[in-house]
Simulated scan of single mutants.
Amino acid sequence: MPETPKKEEAPEPLTEASITKYTTAGQIANDVLKELMGMVKEGTKVGDICTHGDTRIKELTSKCFKKEKEMEKGIGMPTCVSVGHVACHFSPLKSDPDVVLEKGQLVKIDLGAHVDGYIASAAHTFVVGASTDEKVTGKKADVTLAAYNALEATLRQLFPHKGLKNSDITKTISEVAGIYKTTPVENMLSHQIGRFETNIGKEIIQNPSDDQVNKIEKHIFEENEAYIIDILITTGDGKIKQGDIRTTVYKKADNVVYQLKMKNSRNFFSEASKEYGVMPFSIRGFANEVQAKLGVIECERHGLLQPYPVLYDRDSELVAQFKATVLITPSGIVKVAGLPLDTSVYQSDVKIENPIIQSLLKESLKMKKQKKKDEKTAGEAKDTPKADPPQ
């Protein structure tokens, strides 16, 4: 595997080649997400879904750009399946007790693929056993629709010609959540992304806490930028925390050097670096799980790995998540990863009456074609007799 590239000072603008790779990774992410949604049934084990998702991402990415022998491809975000009040990053080990899905549970699947470092990540929320004959109602419907509509409203505010700031989007997410009497999860970030980077440049924060309000630099959005927009909405007060469940998802930290003392740790870190580079991974994917569990301890303790802890709301609450990877192009906002919600399955008593939000959700993601005023003006000028030059 090629040497891990250094962190970019700023993301490179989109090119035809990078758009192709983002789009390829996005198609793989969407295809795998659809497969996993088909697996979500009463009695299915969460661990089986996670394992299948990671396996399929590796299989499908290995089949693209075959002529590019040195190109890195594979998992951009390991498959996580978080149920009910679990907010995110639940990816159990094979040795962990089985978590078996039950009818009526709210399920979130989060995953990602990358091609040559161009990452496309997506997340989707749905209810086990839901259908047009057995519709989702109450809090489950409200929190799901709140998260989905907040995502869709966000995407339509990324158009550069609108001149909106990231702080404007923060307000919109809060407004949409409030319509459904729900709350954005506190301090969750969406990021501008670049090659081999899921966190570079500009950020959008949802529901900032008091100590975070002034820490996010304000900015506008510009053409040829890429973003992962991640929306998490809860029926609770927005404050979530780390639970007692073991963290299994990690990412190699930037610019940290430390000489590991334990052989297990060195072997694990070497394998993780060769297999995943700078991409997030789950230690579930290692053949020697015992070595991985031991090795990760020293690596995390000395800052070589960045943990993605499992986050929880209170048992009585529900958390919904929708994530999309988008490109801001001259022709509009291109959603390369992220699936539409089948809203016919969700029945809510809440109606969006805010005319601004209503209008926003009806907008197309394609850039409106400007009327050719210049051509019209030029035509009129051509037909107008020219004045005689001054004597």
Rank of each mutant, 00 (worst) to 15 (best):
P5K: 15
G117Y: 05
K45G: 03
K239W: 07
V100E: 05
N30G: 09
G243D: 12
D116L: 06
K335V: 14
K69M: 05
V249S: 06
A324P: 05
D142A: 02
K274L: 13
V345S: 03
G53D: 10
F65A: 11
A177F: 01
L101V: 09
K69L: 07
I245H: 03
T170Y: 00
S273R: 09
A226C: 10
L361F: 07
D349R: 08
T24F: 00
I169W: 00
I119K: 08
L305M: 15
E271Y: 02
Q391D: 13
S331M: 10
S348N: 04
Q291I: 13
Q306V: 12
S282K: 04
L155F: 01
L111Y: 10
A378H: 08
S174R: 01
V107A: 00
Q358M: 13
T44Y: 00
K202I: 11
D31M: 09
V336C: 10
H52G: 00
G26H: 06
N354H: 10
Y250V: 04
T329L: 04
A320P: 04
E203S: 10
A29D: 05
E363F: 01
V128I: 03
I357C: 08
A146M: 02
E3S: 14
D31Q: 13
Y312W: 09
L93R: 07
I49T: 07
Y227S: 10
Y22Q: 12
K69I: 13
I283L: 09
K41N: 14
M279G: 12
K351Y: 08
S121G: 11
G163I: 08
K6C: 13
P307M: 12
I204Q: 01
G201L: 07
M279Y: 08
T343A: 07
S282A: 12
D244T: 15
L101R: 00
K261F: 11
Q321R: 04
N267Y: 09
L14P: 10
M71R: 13
G117M: 12
S131I: 04
P208Y: 09
Y148I: 05
V99D: 02
T44H: 01
F90I: 09
V32W: 05
Q259L: 11
K251T: 15
T170E: 11
Q370R: 14
D98R: 00
K103D: 13
R56P: 11
D313I: 02
S82V: 06
D237L: 06
K323L: 09
G53S: 08
K66E: 14
K369G: 15
T172Q: 04
P13R: 07
G129W: 06
L339C: 11
T23R: 07
G47P: 00
I119R: 05
I119S: 07
V81M: 04
G26P: 15
I228W: 01
